[in-house]
Amino acid sequence: MHRITVIGGGLAGLTAAITAAEAGARVTVYEAHHTLGGRARTADGPYRTNEGPHALYNGGPHWAWLKQRGLLGPLAPIPPLEAARLRLRYRGALRRTPPFAMLRLLRRGLGPAPVDVDFRTWATGVAGEEGARAAAHYAAVALFHHDPGALSAAFVQERLRRATKLPPEAHYPRGGWGALVDRMAARAWNLGVRMETLARVDTLPTDTPVVVATSLDAARRLLRDDSLTWPGGRTVLVDLAVRARRGDAFAVSDLDHPGWIERFTAQDRTLAPAGEQLIQGQIPIGPGQSKADGVARAEQLLDLAFEGWRDRVTWRREAVAQNRTGAVDLPGTTWRDRPAVDRGDGVYLAGDQVAAPGVLSEVSFTSALTAVSLALGRQGLDLKHA
């Protein structure tokens, strides 16, 4: 029987553990923290926050993988009346519809954008400068990057299309992402996976294949491999609870600058106590900007879309996420150019910054499936069925 060691108990680690156990391997998972989930943890207590805005896209391969195993669980759909309260900040004011020029970048007949040109240059040729800027900033909801226009046109176009698709691809596990993690952990446990928390690994085992399912920074330190780098975003995360008020926006996309704020209790009232609303936002910041700069921009959006929010706040938290929101691809690069899954000598990488396709958490899923397939030496391994 194969034996596999998985380092990291986040989405990538749990996916790898379940997949390997389904194939008959004996699996041990080591997680450095006291709970599983990685960046998909949901906070305990009255305000069930994730680490920044989280959504599960139904257009990716991980959706089918979760559904086939009964792991999706109950979802919290966006009520139609709430969806109608999406607002866009454009030229300093709130709007209900995007600028017409931006829509040119969403038409069906538009061909694929080039890999080796930045999005701003390519999109300007299609929709003009204002349309290109608005589209790039809207795509930031799936990028967490301060300058989406500087990234590969092909990379941004894919995310823009998926973020604007109708009906929306974004879905929300009821109770927060921690509920999804709990179902995955239970599945792993029932398959016989051994899971050890508060178990930080400083030296790789040599007697089994190892899937390193950590952040790229942690993997670089563990493997002592300075080549394990890839660009990511730097983002201010703002969470707050406010007393409920009719008329609050569902979400606000900043088309003047990259940024997104969403009222998550619009679709899932269990995330905050009765009479309160949970709002989560992500504001990308550049190398020369501070957390205070991002918070100030978030507050500008709140002032526009959540009247009287300052007097209604019951709880608040702020943080900065550095390279913790997935990989971004610069012009001339694709996901294939990121650090390879197979590191040699029985070591495999999984996570959201490695060489695997997908959007945001989908990269963690697909890299984990690839890592297990390689570790078991079974390229024909059926990774779809329970």
Rank of each mutant, 00 (worst) to 15 (best):
G131Q: 01
D116K: 07
R120S: 14
V117E: 05
P98V: 15
D118N: 13
R104T: 13
G131C: 03
A127T: 06
E82C: 09
P114M: 11
W122T: 01
R89G: 11
R120Q: 11
R133S: 02
R104Q: 14
F119L: 04
A83P: 01
L110N: 11
R91F: 05
F100C: 11
A134D: 00
P114G: 12
G131Y: 02
V115M: 05
P99L: 12
L94P: 02
R104W: 13
R120F: 07
H137N: 06
A132R: 02
R133V: 09
E130F: 04
G125R: 06
Y90S: 06
R108K: 13
M102Q: 11
V117T: 15
E82S: 08
T124V: 10
V126S: 05
A134T: 02
A123T: 09
D116V: 11
A132T: 01
R91G: 07
L110F: 14
A136I: 03
R96F: 11
A134V: 01
R120P: 01
T97F: 11
R87I: 15
L110C: 15
T121S: 07
P114A: 15
G128S: 09
A101M: 14
R85A: 10
V126K: 06
V117G: 01
W122H: 03
R89P: 05
E82D: 10
R87N: 08
V117I: 15
F100Y: 14
A127D: 00
R107L: 13
A127G: 07
V126Q: 07
F119R: 02
M102G: 07
A83H: 05
P98Y: 11
F119V: 09
G131F: 04
R96P: 04
A84L: 14
A132P: 00
D116L: 07
P98E: 14
H137M: 00
A127I: 11
P114W: 12
A84G: 04
R96T: 14
A123D: 00
G128D: 02
R89E: 05
G111E: 14
G125A: 12
E129F: 03
R87L: 15
A83C: 05
V117S: 03
A101L: 13
R87S: 12
A132F: 01
L103W: 10
A123G: 03
D116W: 09
R133D: 00
E82I: 11
A83T: 08
R104A: 14
H137K: 01
R96E: 10
M102R: 09
A101P: 09
F119K: 02
G109D: 04
G125F: 12
P98F: 15
